[in-house]
């Protein structure tokens, strides 16, 4: 019952925020006029909203959904409630490698998601192998992740201070501003993001088995290492694509799956779909808030999310410490 209510409320909120986001901004247009204008194509204001506001909204929605699901998958694979693509450095690894490649080869801009993915895989591999020996304990993993994150963020930011032709595109990749998103971004994110999200639905039964211990999963006939790798690759793909298009956003993958488990329980059959909805809701709400609260200037969604996410991580660490005595 509580699960049905949670889903219903989240879907309603999501619709409400989408409508709010469509109507908020310098161009004010009634919903009816907008729909009418979009269908007939004779309303210029509707066309502007279609070309500027719609891509931004869709990118925000997809970024939120992919990051949240990426977090849920990482937490399942690493058996760690604190795993998040932003926190453990996957996003900054993705950001850095794509920035590096774009700077060296500016013409390969369209391959950004690919390089992002390679960067994400590199960062994840480093975190995984460096914390594997200690049995992937949550604190150890987090510490290694923070170190990797700092390294890649620093490397990424160093590009900001060189003053070159690439700076504009670089800025986009390592700080997150959803302005100037076009339908091309929607296509890139829509394609790779949807593939990742569909794959994440396929691995739901595996995620549930990994919630038992490795030994148990092995005794039940699962190839644990192989399963881990497959799920990790999907998680990294989701986070990297989100970073390539939406920029660096932390904490969505931490916040959303945690709230999701509180609301709908630990079964991934519900956790993954709910994370998609709630992640989309959170990022779109943050982005819309960011561009309306101090209009005409903007507060990037990533900053709003960091402001919420930082204290939340502290809260989680305290709670985790109480539960497990760390």
């Amino acid at each position: 019952m509580r699960k049905i209510i949670s889903f219903t409320i989240t879907i309603l909120l999501l619709l409400a925020v989408i409508i709010w986001s469509v109507s908020a901004g310098s161009i004010k247009l009634g919903l009816f006029d907008l729909i009418h204008g979009l269908i007939t194509g004779d309303n210029e204001e509707a066309a502007v909203i279609r070309d500027l506001r719609f891509p931004r909204i869709i990118v925000a929605l997809l970024t939120g959904a992919t990051l949240a699901v990426s977090g849920a998958l990482l937490q399942a694979v690493l058996r760690n409630p604190l795993a998040d693509a932003g926190v453990i450095g996957i996003s900054s690894g993705a950001g850095f490698v794509s920035v590096l490649m774009v700077t060296i080869f500016p013409t390969v801009f369209f391959w950004m998601p690919m390089f992002s993915f390679l960067g994400g895989v590199l960062a994840f591999f480093l975190v995984y192998s460096l914390s594997w020996k200690s049995g992937l304990t949550p604190t150890r993993l987090l510490l290694v992740g923070v170190a990797i994150n700092a390294t890649f963020s620093g490397l990424g930011q160093s590009f900001n201070y060189r003053g070159s032709y690439a700076v504009t595109s670089v800025n986009q990749a390592i700080s997150s501003i959803f302005t100037m998103k076009t339908w091309t971004d929607v296509h890139v994110l829509g394609l790779y993001g949807s593939i990742g999200l569909l794959l994440s639905l396929l691995v739901i039964p595996w995620c549930n088995v990994l919630a038992l211990q490795d030994k148990t999963a092995g005794s039940l006939g699962m190839r644990v290492a192989r399963t881990r790798i497959v799920i990790s690759i999907i998680a990294v793909l989701l986070a990297s694509v989100a970073t390539a298009v939406g920029g660096l956003i932390s904490f969505v993958g931490l916040l959303i799956p945690h709230i999701t488990r509180l609301l709908v329980g630990s079964d991934h059959k519900l956790v993954i779909p709910f994370s998609m909805l709630a992640g989309a809701l959170l990022v779109l709400a943050a982005d819309t808030l960011g561009r309306t609260v101090v209009a005409p200037t903007e507060v990037p969604a990533s900053i709003i999310l960091t402001v919420i996410g930082g204290p939340f991580l502290v809260f989680m660490l305290r709670k985790w410490g109480r539960e497990y005595g760390a």
Binding site: L212, T216, G218, G221, R223, G265, S266
Partner: peptide
């Protein structure tokens, strides 16, 4: 043996077991 094949021959109850508490 393939893992699944082996798991149809032999089952194990481990000493320490963990599962999500709401299962």
């Amino acid at each position: 043996y393939k893992p699944r094949e082996f798991a149809r021959k032999l089952a194990v109850v481990h000493q320490m077991n963990e599962a999500p508490s709401d299962l």
